[in-house]
Computed example of a mutant assay.
Amino acid sequence: MTDRPTLPFGAFVAVDRALDIPDVLAEPVAAALKSWDAPEAARSVLYVDGDPEQADTAAFSAAYDVPLEVSANCVVVAAKRGGRTTLAACLALASTRVDVNSTVRKHLGARKASFAPMDTAVGATGMEYGGITPIGLPDGWPLLIDAAVAATPFVLVGSGRRRGKLILPGRALAQLPGAEVLEGLAV
């Protein structure tokens, strides 16, 4: 009998445990899954293949029958205070948007916060634009997760590449290094 995972949602041809296919994932994502100090959470992460041309949330949702309420976007934010810039990742359901100018700025103690430029986000994470995920972020980065994401039974996030996505329990995301679950992160 095989230990073949089942999908909680979506219309995908195949599903694999992400730990079983590290060569398909972006290097930081594969390394993070392998070394995650929550092995049960790491084992819960599923990988589903997808067309990189359909990687943007709305297109992916339509193409693979994934409700926006279970899709989460990971965005990189640059928070500035006194000449110092702190990069952080924020995770919110695709049906909402991250409150960068108020909640994120205040939480990070910054005078100004904005979405990081694409080149900065890609260079700092080692992931592809359109595939940035909370799994495998650089050491020391804050990971701000909207409470609604953590409360969602299963969530679809990027895989570190434009090709494919990851599905995992929302509660597992709260176990990632640097994770902080915040009420009102997204509006």
Rank of each mutant, 00 (worst) to 15 (best):
G140H: 11
M127T: 06
T120Q: 13
I145G: 04
S114C: 00
G123I: 07
M118K: 14
E128T: 07
I145A: 04
L166V: 02
L108N: 03
G158N: 10
K165V: 07
G160T: 09
L144C: 08
F115Y: 14
G130I: 05
P153W: 10
G126Q: 13
G178Q: 07
A113C: 08
G164V: 06
L156A: 15
L137I: 09
G170T: 06
P169E: 09
P169G: 12
L144S: 04
A150M: 03
G140Q: 08
G158Y: 07
L144M: 06
P142Y: 03
P134F: 06
A113F: 04
G136Y: 03
V157D: 00
L166Y: 03
V157L: 04
G126K: 12
A179S: 14
L108I: 04
A124P: 04
L108C: 05
T152H: 07
T133R: 08
A179K: 13
L108V: 04
R162I: 03
T125Q: 09
T152F: 01
G109I: 06
Y129V: 06
A147L: 02
L156S: 14
A124Y: 00
F154V: 00
S159F: 03
G109P: 10
A148M: 01
D119Y: 02
P117W: 04
L168Y: 01
L143F: 01
G160K: 01
F115M: 15
S114A: 15
G131K: 07
R161Q: 13
A121P: 10
T125G: 06
P169T: 10
A124Q: 14
T152W: 00
S159H: 06
A151R: 15
V122E: 09
I135C: 09
G158F: 03
M118S: 08
G158Q: 06
G164Y: 04
T152D: 11
R111P: 00
I132N: 08
F154N: 15
G131M: 12
P117D: 14
S159M: 07
V149R: 02
T120L: 14
G136M: 13
A174L: 03
V157T: 15
L144T: 05
M118V: 15
I135N: 04
P117Y: 02
W141Y: 13
